[in-house]
């Protein structure tokens, strides 16, 4: 009897090992451990055994049952795991296929430049002032120390609508309007971005419509050195900490003294190249101390108040920064151009 039990155990275990499906395994369970199975049958013959042998044989029979059951369990887990694995394997996808596109447009490069400049100056305490694009001759020229017949009016041939109304040729009239609104009191700290218009034939470097950003600070004791310090912060934040700036005297009717600011050329590191026309410097903006006539016309006492102003062209900055070679790209809006300005630098 003992041998028979051992035999059954070995036989069952071999079958378990050979089984390859959960169904087969269940059949084995029923066959060996079921009420009609061989072990039960063997135990039925226990009555013939002596009282001493009976508990020993009972224990053995239990042992065999447990061994088979435990093996069954292990095998079942193995088969289940294999089944899951097979299912997952059949679900494999090609992860290199393209994803479902998520739409995203982006800022026009000019907005990108303008917002960067706006944010930079907002951080320095400036507010953003805007003004009309169709302007009175008075604000566009006269209030800026450019009386009728002034030779400097030639510098910016204009689109007039009537004799007194024109498309503004610069954003400076916003300065004049803002000062007038402040009624002779300081301080003012503004930057003014906007569209401006000049009578130029559109070509690679000229556009009859373009953007400008002006800055104006008016207060008591505003100094040229303040202008220099402000412009240096702007240049370094905008173009890189390693850039040098230089101020060159220049002329604008609405500032005195007037300067132009150059930054050292990034491409050649200041040694001279075609971008900087061999000078090592690139002109970025015009600036100066607000002309006393401009202050007085806007109702400020020029003995008490001083101010500085600066103006720059976002197109030029974008062209330098991104290496764009033709100003017309900004207004043609070729999608292959626009799409290039989405990512971070």
């Amino acid at each position: 009897m003992q041998e028979r039990l051992k035999e059954l155990q070995a036989e069952a275990i071999q079958k378990i090992e050979q089984s390859s499906s959960l169904k087969e395994l269940n059949d084995i369970r029923v066959a060996y451990l079921g009420k009609k199975g061989p072990i039960t049958e063997v135990l039925r013959g226990m009555g013939k055994l002596s009282a001493e042998e009976r508990p020993i044989m009972g224990a053995l029979a239990n042992e065999v049952r447990e061994a088979i059951a435990s093996r069954l369990e292990t095998k079942q887990a193995e088969l289940e795991a294999a089944a899951v694995q097979a299912k997952l394997a059949s679900e494999t996808i090609d992860v290199t296929l393209p994803g479902r596109p998520v739409k995203a447009g982006n800022h026009h490069p000019l907005t990108r430049i303008i917002e960067e400049i706006e944010d930079l100056f907002i951080g320095m305490g400036y507010e953003i002032a805007e003004g009309p694009e169709v302007e009175q001759d008075y604000y566009n020229f006269e209030a800026l120390n450019l009386p009728k017949g002034h030779p400097a009016r030639d510098m910016q041939d204009s689109f007039y609508i009537t004799e007194e109304i024109l498309l503004r040729t610069h954003t400076s009239p916003v300065q004049a309007r803002t000062m007038e609104k402040h009624q002779g009191k300081g301080p003012i700290k503004i930057i003014c971005p906007g569209k401006v218009y000049r009578r130029d034939n559109d070509d690679a470097t000229h556009s009859h419509q373009f953007m400008q950003i002006e800055g104006l600070v008016v207060g008591e004791n505003i100094r040229m050195s303040d202008l220099k310090g402000t412009l240096e912060i702007f240049a370094k934040k905008m173009f890189g900490e390693d850039r040098e700036i230089r101020l060159r005297p220049s002329f604008f009717p609405f500032t005195e003294p007037s300067v132009e600011m150059d930054i050292s050329c990034k491409i050649c590191g200041g040694h001279g190249c075609s971008v900087c026309k061999q000078t090592g410097w690139i002109e970025i903006l015009g600036a100066g101390m607000v002309h006393p006539n401009v202050l007085e016309m806007a109702g400020y006492d020029s003995k008490k108040y001083t101010g500085f102003a600066f103006g720059m062209g976002p197109e030029r900055i974008a062209m330098l920064k991104y290496g764009i070679d033709d100003i017309r790209h900004f207004y043609t809006d070729d999608i292959r151009f626009l799409m290039q300005f989405a990512k971070h630098e």
Binding site: K103, N106, L110, F159, L167, H208, Q209, F330, D333, L338
Partner: peptide, 10 residues
Amino acid sequence: GLYQTFTYSL
């Protein structure tokens, strides 16, 4: 999903 443009006022 829209791209910003700049076009002429005139």
